[in-house]
Amino acid sequence: MIKVLFFGRLGDIAGAEERKVSVPEQVRTVDDLRQLLGEDGEALAKALNEPQVMVAVNQDLVEWDHVFEDEDEVAFLPPVTGG
């Protein structure tokens, strides 16, 4: 099981800010995970694949080929708008 977090507009599109996901063995990288989550619907698939979306594993920004572990926290981050 991993914990998946969706921030900003991604939370609205995913229908929840947090999901517990059990992933099949062949889903290894955060990009694989993004494609798996995108199977839920076209809107989420499109939003997660926007070029400006970033991904963090256990609160560190990582590249899309990063391999996650069981129990990790994976967060999808749209462009930030603080300040």
Binding site: F7, G8, R9, P79, V80, T81, G82, G83
Partner: peptide, 25 residues
């Protein structure tokens, strides 16, 4: 300020006239 606005993980949502929308960078 410049780095905070473009790097720190904050997101703004506006509520105007009963409609909510996320702010774009």
């Amino acid at each position: 300020m410049d780095y905070l606005k473009t790097r720190a993980t904050f997101w703004k949502k506006v509520n105007a006239g009963g409609e909510e929308s996320w702010v774009d960078m």
